[in-house]
Design a protein around this nucleic acid. Structure first.
Lengths: 125, 125
DNA sequence: GGAGACAGGGAAAAATTTATCCCTATAAAA
DNA sequence: TTTTATAGGGATAAATTTTTCCCTGTCTCC
């Protein structure tokens, strides 16, 4: 387990939010659970381009934050399911807002970035 | 300038949004500009715990995405100001949503994380 | 002339996150 | 008995982001 050398600044609400949903694959994972793909193996199957190890790390992180809840059933082989906590439910509409904004401006942003040239910045008088 | 070795996946809107606001200090920078702290030197003064170099990198990134617009005035010494583009304006309420959610659940999340213990996960029958 | 404010960036190191590889272990099915 | 599915993690490497250090200039003020 990696130990941070520089303490995080979590004084602002946005830092908290970004910490929760900012990981590379967290959004996808959350989306899986939202669609009832809630067992580790099922999530791994759907997110087959992502290393399962990473998915597990993200799941554990979300669990630590209290966004998702891990249920271990006493079956053999063990069955595990993740579901949202109430706070986890409450972040879903927030994610939807981000999703919508991103979809609405994807082209603009990608176009800008592709076309960007330092020398194009105009000098005003 | 660092060149990515693995192409980004920007197929989902959330990935776009996180890309735009996900940098370590972007939120603070955006907040500065929102409060009319828009000159590099002024931003550097306010964000004095952050290395100016980093702030400049983030500013350039936001400019590339078309979130902020750089104005260079033909004065000596050169005066530079950043302001929002229309798309930049449109992300402000999104950030507010994140800010609000984070503030609302900061304690819960930090408490959970502090208390988290693997062995506390119950086994269901 | 020297100090400080202004805007900016290269090179390299450090920190952090993500990825790969290869293990453990149990039980059902082939 | 070997394979497959389940869940999971250690060690290490690679990729990425963030940080530090130290430069370049111009102009104003003392």
């Amino acid at each position: 387990m990696y130990e941070k050398k520089i303490p995080e600044l979590l004084d602002c609400g946005l830092a908290i939010s970004v910490k929760v949903i900012g990981g590379k694959w967290k959004a996808w994972i959350i989306d899986c659970i939202k669609r009832d793909v809630k067992r580790p193996s099922a999530i791994h199957r759907e997110m087959n381009i992502v290393n399962p190890r990473i998915i597990n790390l993200h799941l554990k992180e979300l669990e630590e934050y209290g966004i998702i809840c891990k249920k271990v059933y006493a079956e053999v082989p063990a069955r595990v399911e993740y579901c949202f906590t109430p706070v986890g439910e409450s972040i879903l509409p927030v994610i939807q807002v981000l999703e919508d904004w991103g979809n609405q401006h994807r082209e603009y942003i990608q176009h800008n970035q592709a076309e960007y040239r330092e020398d194009a910045v105009p000098v005003l008088r």
